[in-house]
Design a protein around this nucleic acid. Structure first.
Length: 894
RNA sequence: GCCCGAGUGGCGGAAUUGGUAGACGCGCUGGAUUCAAAAUCCAGUUCUGGCAACGGAGUGCGGGUUCGAUUCCCGCCUCGGGUACCA
């Protein structure tokens, strides 16, 4: 029947893949229009940074997944929006320019062209008419436009809403102080503001970076070096903390993984507690602290203020002054990195002064220590050493009393004794002890934790000593960079000190051409060198300078999903009608590395735009899915050093170093040039075809899992596609007439399973179902044309090229990608019998095929009377028989 | 330290309102085809005892609930990701 020899020559995937890619592109098959007669589906991929090294195999993973979903959704009658573009501002192009003198715009264009070619060679169904590029002035004109909106917005805390700056009420006492004060007040309320800020500066990149970009090992996320330090510079900042509550609340209704939501919540870092005033003994000053446990006030035996705290100088006594000053100096010299790296050892100096614990009346010493950070809470704490690990370490180091106020009932006796004696620290819950002051009428002994907290806060409030407060870890977002290759700010600094935004009609502020890309060490951007661009004069002859900083790479990606909706609009960022139709994004797929930064930033921008009535949804991305990373096998010696893959031989399942003969361990690691295990999608496509690459990446395992690449795995799916082609392209296998019942049943099971799996994003099991169907076809040797065509439709989202080719071979036109998804005929799936597993005491012993119509009694009888059962019943008593229809028969014997 | 996620054959992985553990693929073994090889097709493949029929064990470890547990509960271990003097 089969004649593989001749067909083998015909499986020319290169030719037909090119043919169909050209067809899809030229006929704009995947162009989408707003069309209210059909349900919409907006499916977004995280757009790539077009690097010089081209596409990585990780890119096609997410892209193929969304492509399958989009092709399936189209077949199900949805109006699908599936765009692609380039996040093309960024450091590498600029560094390349510094090294070679090539304009970043040129490098970027080349890289985009290469990325586009590579992506198109995978047969992904993007609407290329909507392609965008963040470096295109026609695009960043609107990035600048949105920045101006941020600049002209203030946050109304009562309404929890951003509002136009001209609606900002000016308090009477500010108004009284005059024009300057009013101006200052307005500046203080803008969501985007320009101020001296202590910022991270990367000496390698010669630019500032956001808090979020400095990793916890002290390295810069963008360049990987540890050349980051603290500096004071005038910078643009965005008040993202104002939206903290909204950013937390908004997560509630989103179809995102709990993991990502948790990461965002942790990043925002909301904590509820109270601020409490402590009188400083001997002087008329109050020290305000923030605590999450006001109920432990009875156990506060000392206080700590941060070295940068304003009150330090006023508090310190004469004889402690020199010591304290020395300590502050050394703390300032330490970078934050040192401060955290040396975290374990507590340092500090006594100020010489005492505070009065408002609840016990005790005098407690005030210390300066760098384990308290100025940037969080009030920059001062009350220390409860008995129930806080850090405070306990500090108290032990400096011999400060420890008062236990929580009886650790859960601890064992020995530990409990130690804790009660103040010799150990207990941070879990316990019963209040020593928490009573009859003079003040305050007693929380015997209360629950919640009541204790409430009682103390109420008391503090009544006595005007404090109040409940909420704190967030998230800080203002540092939004300017001292680089050339980024969006210029639409801002002018005038000689009289005024700062103003460029008028909308004068946008975009384009990037001037220059040869000097070198940032200066002084913190000034290369744009400061381009005089003719830099200097401006207004109609009154007033001179001004343009802002020379540029926006960070995050800017362009904060709103690109909105521009895809209406990418060629010159009049506005997007048409409101179209935005209203397409938003929100129904599915957003990309790497987990953006779980906080990009997603938090763009949600923030989106919420501001929503408050201003520019977009119609409160959240941009309804469903988010993070794909797992694709890794590769690598090899290491017993000592743990890595060995490049080309120096490794596999012999009898063992991995041997070709030079030393040492046996190596196979590990899984990120692909890297040094390990020589990088897989280039172009190589895979030319050797096995785009369909194989797509199918393999989907077959590797669940989309969200990290998994290693194997070449033999690619061969496996390639083999499957060849089997599909050899069978379904062979005219002798395709017959007319009635289809075999088993084939029909399996076919419809396959339609059902593949469809459901796509909806659940379980692509790997859908492929295995198609393999099962193909294996079946080889067994039965013939299928009808209708079956073959239906199978092609099921295969089409996964392996669109081969599906189109088969479709055309069967004489159909125009394209299978425009065909409807086949209907499942449930009547083919009905089973008349079920092959029951019969188990004894839960262990399966034999199978028994029975009609599904049998009653439980009949099933019991059939099972116990079966000849296979005698052996298991011999000498035993039947205690019980469990029959679960169409599941199992379990006989309990004794 | 804290917060997530995950541990199943030689390998990637299936199966969860509790019901046949190992689908599908890789690898390996054998066979067909071939002068031969490649390619292709067919069969076998958790470990273990046995020629076999047929047994025993088995989803990170230790317990528990149940007629029945990869799935539920309790206590651990290991790995991956995030985060950290945040009071």
């Amino acid at each position: 029947m089969l004649n593989p020899y001749s067909l083998q020559m015909d499986f020319n995937f290169t030719d037909f893949e090119k043919k169909w890619q050209k067809y899809w592109l030229e006929n704009k098959v995947f162009a989408s229009k707003a069309d209210t007669s059909r349900p919409k589906f907006y499916c977004l991929d995280m757009f790539p940074y077009p690097s010089g090294s081209g596409l990585h195999v990780g890119h096609p993973e997410g892209y193929t997944a969304t492509d399958i979903i989009c092709r399936y959704k189209r077949a199900k009658g949805f109006n699908v929006l599936h765009p692609m573009g380039w996040d093309a501002f960024g450091l590498p192009a600029e560094q390349y320019a510094i090294q070679t003198g090539t304009q970043p715009a040129i490098t970027t264009e080349n890289n985009c062209n290469n990325f586009r070619r590579q992506i198109q060679s995978l047969g992904l169904s993007y609407d290329w008419d909507r392609e965008i590029n963040t470096t295109d002035p026609a695009y960043f004109k609107w990035t600048q436009w949105i920045f101006i909106r941020l600049y002209n917005t203030w946050f109304d805390k009562d309404l929890q809403k951003g509002r136009p700056i001209n609606e900002l009420p000016i308090p009477a006492e500010i108004e009284k102080k005059g024009k300057e004060a009013v101006k200052e007040y307005i500046e203080k309320n803008r969501l985007a503001y320009y101020d001296n800020a202590q910022v991270w500066w990367c000496n390698n990149c010669k630019t500032v970076c956001a808090n979020e970009e400095v990793l916890n090992d002290g390295s810069h996320e963008k360049c990987g070096t540890k050349e980051v330090e603290r500096r004071f510079l005038k910078q643009w900042m965005l008040r993202i903390p104002h939206y903290a509550e909204r950013l937390i609340d908004g997560l509630e209704g989103l179809d995102w993984g709990e993991g990502v939501k948790d990461m965002q919540r942790n990043w925002i870092g909301k904590s509820t507690g109270a601020e409490v005033d402590f009188k400083v003994d001997g002087i008329d000053k109050k020290l305000r602290v923030y605590t999450t446990r006001p109920d432990t006030l009875f156990g506060a035996t000392y206080m700590v203020i941060a070295p940068e705290h304003k009150l330090v100088n006023e508090i310190v006594t004469a004889d402690q002054k020199s010591k304290v000053e020395e300590y502050i100096k050394s703390a300032a010299l330490k970078s934050d990195l040192d401060r955290t790296e040396l975290a374990k050892e507590k340092t500090g100096v006594f100020t010489g002064k005492y505070a009065i614990n408002p609840i016990t009346g005790n005098l407690i010493p005030i210390w300066v220590a760098d384990y308290v950070l100025m940037g969080y809470g009030t920059g001062a704490i009350m220390a409860v050493p008995a129930h806080d690990t850090r405070d306990f370490e500090f108290a032990k180091e400096f011999d400060i009393p420890v008062t236990c106020i929580l009886d650790p009932e859960a601890a064992d006796n020995e530990l409990r004794e130690k804790i009660l004696a103040g010799e150990a620290c207990w941070t879990d819950d316990g019963a209040y002890i020593n928490s009573e002051n009859p003079d003040l009428g305050l007693n929380i002994n015997g209360m629950s934790k919640a009541d204790g907290i409430k009682t103390v806060i109420d008391w503090l409030k009544e006595n005007n000593l404090g109040e409940a407060t909420i704190n967030y870890k998230i800080r203002d977002w540092l939004f300017s960079r001292q680089r050339y290759w980024g969006e210029p700010f639409p801002i002018i600094h005038w000689e009289d000190g005024e700062v103003s935004a460029v008028e909308d009609e004068n946008l975009p502020v384009e990037l001037p051409k220059t040869d000097k890309y070198h940032p200066s060490n002084s913190g000034e951007s290369p744009l400061a060198n381009v005089t003719e661009w830099l200097e401006v004069v207004d109609e009154n002859g007033r001179k001004g300078r343009r802002e020379t900083n540029t926006m960070p790479q995050w800017a362009g990606s904060c709103w690109y999903y909105l521009r895809y909706i209406d990418p060629k609009n010159d009049e506005e960022p997007f048409s409101k009608v179209k935005e209203n139709y397409w938003m929100p994004v129904d599915l957003y797929v990309g790497g987990a590395e953006h779980a906080v930064l990009h997603l938090l930033y763009s949600r923030f921008w989106h919420k501001v735009l929503f408050d201003l009535g520019i977009v119609s949804t409160d959240e941009p991305y309804q469903k988010l899915y993070n794909q797992g990373m694709i890794l590769a096998f690598a090899y290491e010696t017993a000592a743990g050093s890595k060995v490049p893959s080309d120096l490794v031989d596999e012999i009898d399942g063992k991995y041997i170093h070709t030079q030393t003969g040492e046996e190596l361990k196979q590990i899984v690691a990120k692909m890297s040039k040094s390990l020589k295990n990088v897989v280039n999608p172009d190589d895979v496509t030319s050797e096995y075809g785009a369909d194989s690459l797509r199918l393999y990446e989907m077959f590797m395992g669940p989309l969200d899992q990290t998994k290693p690449w194997t070449d033999t795995g690619v061969k496996g799916v390639f083999n499957f596609l060849k089997r599909v082609y050899y069978f379904f392209a062979e005219p002798n296998n395709i017959v007319e007439g009635e289809e075999n019942k088993d084939t029909l049943k399996l076919l419809h099971q396959t339609i059902k399973k593949v469809g459901e799996d796509i909806e659940d994003m379980k692509f790997n099991t859908a492929i295995s179902q198609m393999m099962i169907f193909t294996n079946h076809c080889y067994k039965v040797k013939h299928v009808t044309r209708e079956t073959a065509e239906t199978f092609a439709k099921v295969l089409a989202p996964y392996a669109p090229h081969i599906a189109e080719e088969l479709w055309e071979m069967y004489g159909n036109e125009p394209a299978i990608c425009q065909e409807a998804w086949p209907e499942v005929n449930e009547s083919y799936l009905v089973e008349n019998t079920f092959d029951y597993p019969v188990s004894f005491n839960g262990k399966m012993r034999f199978k028994l095929e029975l009609s599904v119509d049998l009653s439980k009694d009949e099933i019991e009888k059939a099972a116990t009377s079966n000849e296979n059962a005698t052996k298991w019943l011999e000498g035993k008593q039947i205690v019980k028989i469990i029959v679960v229809p169409k599941k199992i028969i379990n006989i309990v014997v004794r």
